[in-house]
Amino acid sequence: MTASKPLESFDLAGVVVGETAISNVEGDLGRLSYRGVDINELVQRPFANVAWLVLFGSDADAARQLQLNRFLCAHAALTQEERGILKRLPRHLHPMLVLQGMVPLIELPTEETLGLGLEAEQGLVLAAKLSGLIAAWYRAEQGLAPLGGGPDDNFHANFLTRLHGQVPDGDAVKILDATQILQMEHSFNAGTFAGRVCASTLAPIQSVISASIGTLYGRLHGGADQAALEMAQAIGAPEKAAAYVARCLAEKTKIMGMGHREYRTVDPRAKLLKPMAMALCHDPDSRRLLDTLIAVEQACQTEFAKRDKEIWANVEFYKGAVFHSLGIPSHFFTAMFAMARVYGYIAHFLEFRRDSRLIRPRARYVAAGSHAGE
């Protein structure tokens, strides 16, 4: 009998499982583009313009951007029923579990109002609700009541007002826009692919987004952002970074936020985020955390160079410092990721729906006790 192929070799890494026109990850070149537009250009645009481009494949003029901002701001407000459900949830729940559980419970519109198609508008309602849920859960953890939004013509200004109770300055909104644009879409990542699998069963959009959010929560996916900043907090100071990195490598412990499965050179998103973080982190605590992260990256590069290898920080690594400076606690970082990536999830749902086919891979049955290495 022919020896069984080791199960570990059955890996989807690099396997083409579909086509998309939404984003292109060119890992060998360190490039990322949405709808053919490079991320370096997109990060300079208004958030609503990029969200529209990702969703619908075209630029939104000023009138469309204002329409989208006002739609999102209006639907970010939680209904009385939604607030009632939140009140009954245990306060120790991680925000990502709250989002995953609440998304299927949101009552969606049954008629379109923007002329974009019902499923697209239902997706946008869910995108708006994520911001309202994050802000409400943040305040609930502190024993505070949810707040109404601020400006109705800027989605992220509205969100930060719901979060902290005061209208943010323009710099805070600008850097949140840029950070969320950078993590809006990334081709067939694990969360997006999970959503496409769910969509292939003809499940509704709220189930698809819930499945994607649940996948994003993992420490090897979106959860790396929380882990990276908490690592810096645990290290405590930049001068301790080298010893920490040496210990991790000796013990074969993963350093969260370092390296990326797709990029063979620097992650273009991290390349943009690092200077943003350096410009934003002024208070002593934020600066110490940022300097510690920089020291970890430098120590990693030094150690890997000794092995004739290269390693670079990924997008998760520096965005935690940005969020920390905006007053967002680390256990909410991945929820903020979901709040941005949801536009990619919606875009993939709409793209896949046009030519949907059930995704049903096969498994090779292995009799008990016959696994390789047993």
Score class of each variant (00 low, 15 high):
T179S: 15
K240L: 15
V15A: 04
A299C: 09
L326Q: 05
S207M: 04
H348S: 09
M102T: 14
L116C: 14
T20W: 06
E121W: 10
I235M: 08
L42V: 10
K274L: 14
H348P: 04
A63K: 13
I209D: 01
P361R: 14
E82F: 11
S330G: 02
V167P: 05
K240M: 14
G148R: 13
P275R: 09
W52I: 05
A128T: 11
V167F: 02
I311L: 04
A21W: 03
G344Y: 05
G30R: 10
G117N: 15
V25D: 07
N49M: 06
R247W: 08
L78H: 03
R364K: 11
L118H: 11
L42H: 10
Y365K: 02
E262Q: 04
P361T: 10
A13K: 13
D285M: 05
R196G: 02
W52K: 03
E303P: 04
L124M: 12
S207C: 03
Q44K: 15
A211F: 04
A203E: 03
F332W: 08
A299M: 12
G236V: 08
A21M: 09
E297F: 07
A372C: 15
N24A: 15
G84P: 01
A140Q: 14
I85A: 09
E374C: 14
V54S: 13
R354A: 09
P284L: 05
P168F: 13
C248E: 09
F155L: 06
Q206W: 02
A232P: 01
T215S: 14
L118W: 09
Q142Y: 01
Q183S: 02
H75Q: 13
F349G: 01
P90F: 03
N189A: 14
T201M: 06
E239K: 06
G344K: 05
C248G: 06
A135I: 10
L216W: 03
I328R: 07
E119P: 02
A63F: 04
D61I: 13
V15W: 02
